[in-house]
Design a binder for these strands. Structure first.
Lengths: 328, 328
DNA sequence: GTGAAAGCGCTAACAA
DNA sequence: TTGTTAGCGCTTTCAC
């Protein structure tokens, strides 16, 4: 039995309504407010958020649903989201789906049960395409990946452009047989593949792409096998930080010289990419901005529910390092 | 206005009590249970968790309070915690303190307001020493760091031993002027420093240790300066993954040869440590086990509130790599 | 096995 | 400005 607002009221000699108002920012005379504060301090009162949320019908809580909390991209985005949310007096619930559509559905249901104010969602391709966000009962801002038909707010990277940039960079440096490794669950992977393929076609070059599960281990295994084949590429684009990590591990394990026998380039300027030898050429995503803008868009939407949906497309930045050094 | 248990009851032609029982696992006849399920499906009913928690007086929620969600150590621990929690039908709220005692206090208060069942907490040294966990109203399991006087459950690494192991490894490989970089906010840093110092003293060697803010940037700056001094060490121990990362960056920026001019060793087998050139020698922590055991201990404590507090001390594993190759 | 009714702790009308 | 009162949606006695 913890102390409730009633105990505080009794102790302060006022009504519960006055306590409630003093704790929120209702109109209360300074004298009573002081009394209430003293009583609160004396009995160590803590408001019950469940009761408050139930009664007030708003939770001041947003959900952040991502596919992999161990991916530095998402942790960085998460921090930015939390930052903005916190400043706006909102709490954030972090949910991890492992790129599993069942878990996504489960968490979406949970968010409904929590009666969250809104959700920021990095969905798998399957869910992004199928999801009807209007049925959920709360606004959704998609990040990183957006469904083809998604009629909701989103903040995205210009993935096609970024992937094309990577290819053009490799072409400039003299590489021709360029392969690609893409995640098979996200629309991000699909879009990056599209940009990759376009750029190669423009150059009149063949498109050699492979799709793998979005983990370093899967990428490592795939590339290890690929390197054994006759079609092994002389440069490789990996469609996210985890895949690039896997590729780097495969290359290291096979003793392949980078970039002499295989040049490497990918996405996400994770800290290891700078430290690896040679350093990895990557597209850096504006992670902070993605998180910040997503949360701000959600706040906007909460304020104006009828505003037309908006997509914000951010550009990546090419960071050229030794792994794509010009060909001798 | 969302649909409530009343609507379901009306639609199913039963009382709200029956709906509640059917949704939980109370005793309900199969016939009525089927009716209820049909009604739930028909009107898309979702129970309101705030109401449920308020009424039932238990939240099935635990808080996980860590100092830095971007640190791979904590994300890995977090996943393990969530895994066990989820299997036990519990939710976890993740809180990020930035090693800031004010934020820690704030989140602790928030956990009280949420009426969480319990908390898993990686506290700063200041908080770990001062905190009276009996006053909180919920059980706490400390991880990674435990207060000197903390009379509560904890799961820890044997930090002194691990740090000493690192020192002995470096001694064996022929290094003598061994420096150390330790975090200045965590008891972990302090314990690792103790083990480090002991091992050096046993060997009759001087102890050169520096304490820095627990970020890669701080470590990088500190080591960059240190390398300029006459007292620059010939081998360096960094007390966690972030500090080691900073050290590696400083070394890279200064063009210092590893391990010829400076050998490197540290904590946390983060993925980059394997990929860096040379690979980093580290103490690998059993991250999964730390998270799993912590959550299991919390569950135990919830079942038996009066059980005497227990500390579980886990051992680290030395992973030797090129950064501490034997001296020529 | 089922329903009626009480009430968890709080906020928001409405009166005063 | 302050107090009284009525619920928010649910679970849990307590009767039947």
């Amino acid at each position: 039995m913890t102390t409730s607002i009633k105990d505080v009221a009794l102790l302060a000699g006022v009504s519960v309504a006055t306590v409630s108002r003093a704790l929120g920012n209702g109109p209360v005379s300074p004298a009573l407010r002081a009394k209430v504060e003293a009583a609160v301090a004396q009995c160590g009162y803590r408001p019950n958020l469940s009761a408050r949320r139930l009664r007030s019908q708003h939770t001041r809580t947003v959900g952040l649903i991502v596919s992999d909390i161990c991916n530095p991209f998402f942790t960085a985005v998460g921090r930015a989201v939390e930052d903005v949310a916190y400043r706006a007096g909102m709490r954030v619930i972090l949910c991890n789906t492992d790129e599993n559509p069942d878990k996504e559905a489960m968490y979406l249901r949970l968010m409904q049960e929590e009666r969250v104010s809104g959700v920021i969602f990095a969905a798998t391709r399957a869910t992004a395409d199928a999801l009807d966000t209007t049925e959920l009962g709360f606004p959704v801002v998609m990040i990183d990946r957006a469904g083809a038909a998604a009629r909701c707010d989103a903040v995205l990277l210009d993935n096609r452009l970024a992937a094309a940039q990577l290819v053009e960079h490799l072409l400039e440096r003299g590489y021709r047989r360029i392969g690609g490794l893409f995640g098979n669950t996200s629309s991000t992977g699909a879009e990056r593949h599209a940009g990759f393929a376009e750029a190669l076609r423009r150059a009149g070059l063949p498109v050699a792409a492979r799709f793998v599960a979005p983990s370093a281990a899967a990428a490592q295994a795939e590339l290890a096998a690929w390197l054994q084949e006759e079609t092994a590429p002389e440069a490789l684009v990996a469609s996210n930080g985890l895949l690039l990590l896997g590729a780097a591990k495969a290359v290291r394990a096979a003793g392949v010289a980078v970039p002499q026998r295989l040049a490497l380039a990918g996405f996400d300027n994770d800290s290891w990419t700078e430290l690896a030898e040679p350093g990895m050429t990557v597209i850096e995503q504006p992670v902070d901005e993605i998180g910040r803008v997503a949360m701000e868009m959600l706040l906007e939407r909460l304020r104006q529910p009828e505003r037309p949906p908006r997509k914000v497309v951010l550009a990546g930045r090419l960071v050229a390092r030794g792994s794509s050094r010009a060909r001798a």
